[in-house]
Design a protein around this nucleic acid. Structure first.
Length: 269
DNA sequence: ATGACAACCTGTGGGC
DNA sequence: TGCCCACAGGTTGTCA
């Protein structure tokens, strides 16, 4: 489900309702996510004041007076603020009451996580992360230097977290289309100038998606339960057989690195 | 070090 | 209508 824009949309949606507020009760209904939710979270987090909600890569970090939490939405996770009177749904695994609302973590596939940030496991997850794509540290030169001697397809290269965080399957296809680069091209066979263009397009695509509230393919909703609208402007993702919006050639799809990929064979070389 | 790929788990949609 | 299979937005861990 969520790539960087969807996580950012979630953070922006829920933070105003959490920051400065007390997390009154924390209830774990299903601790079995990708890694077990620490049993200590229920009692230790209850009563904490939430100081800040921030995003790092596709992680959400809840900074509280009783310790910080590192959460990830996996493939199908979402946080949503609801009326406590509304019934809890299947796969609502965590409930946190805040004021007259309840924050629910919903995740059918349970690939997400909810850990104490200070724990070694959480620290290890953050340790290997590359630069934020919307930061000044992310440049074409960085991509170019990282790509030396890398034979891997450029699409897999930009989806790898040590290289740059937050670029998932949708936005990898989209940014490569805007950069005019074929997703199967070996990472080491792209010039620094083309990487400058690619880095710029990655930033533009992610920023536009954030401004549209993210992409909803099946079920993504923001903190208020609303869908994103970026899918209406997707250029190639999920459009196999449909005409390229630039040259009208049918969009191709191919499995690259085990993930479905979409591109225009004329516009992307 | 690099790259390929299975694994984690449930829901959904298409084909028959 | 129902069954079965393929596939889905991510990431880690294992193995060659």
């Amino acid at each position: 489900m969520p790539e960087l824009p969807e996580v950012e949309t979630t953070v922006r949606g829920i933070a105003p309702f959490l920051v400065g507020q007390r997390l009154n009760t924390v209830t774990i209904h299903q601790p079995s996510l990708r890694w077990p939710i620490p049993a200590s979270i229920e009692t230790r987090l209850s009563g904490a004041i939430c100081h800040q909600v921030i995003r790092r890569a596709k992680y959400l970090i809840f900074e509280t007076s009783h310790g910080d939490v590192l959460a990830h939405l996996g493939m199908s996770g979402s946080f949503r603020l609801s009326d406590p009177e509304s019934p809890r749904k299947t796969h609502d695994h965590i409930e946190i009451t805040v004021g007259d609302l309840v924050l629910r973590y919903h995740d059918p596939r349970r690939f997400g996580c909810f850990l104490w940030l200070a724990d070694a496991q959480a620290q290890a997850l953050l340790a290997t992360l590359g630069p934020e794509p919307l930061s000044d540290a992310f440049t074409g030169r960085w991509l170019y230097t990282q790509a030396r001697r890398r034979q891997v397809a450029v699409k897999n290269f930009i989806m790898s977290n040590p290289v740059v965080v937050g670029v998932g399957n949708i936005y990898a296809s989209e940014s490569l289309f805007f950069a005019g680069i074929h997703p199967n091209r070996a990472a080491c066979r792209i010039s620094e100038a083309r990487y400058e263009h690619l880095a710029q397009q990655i930033r533009v695509v992610l920023e536009r998606a954030i401004n549209s509230g993210g992409t909803t393919l099946r079920d993504f909703v923001n903190g208020q339960g609303e869908p994103g609208y970026f899918q209406q402007t997707l250029q190639v993702y999920g459009r196999a057989g449909e005409p390229c919006r630039q040259c009208h050639t049918p969009i191709q799809s191919a499995v690259i690195g085990g993930r479905n990929s979409y591109f225009c064979k004329v516009c992307q070389r």
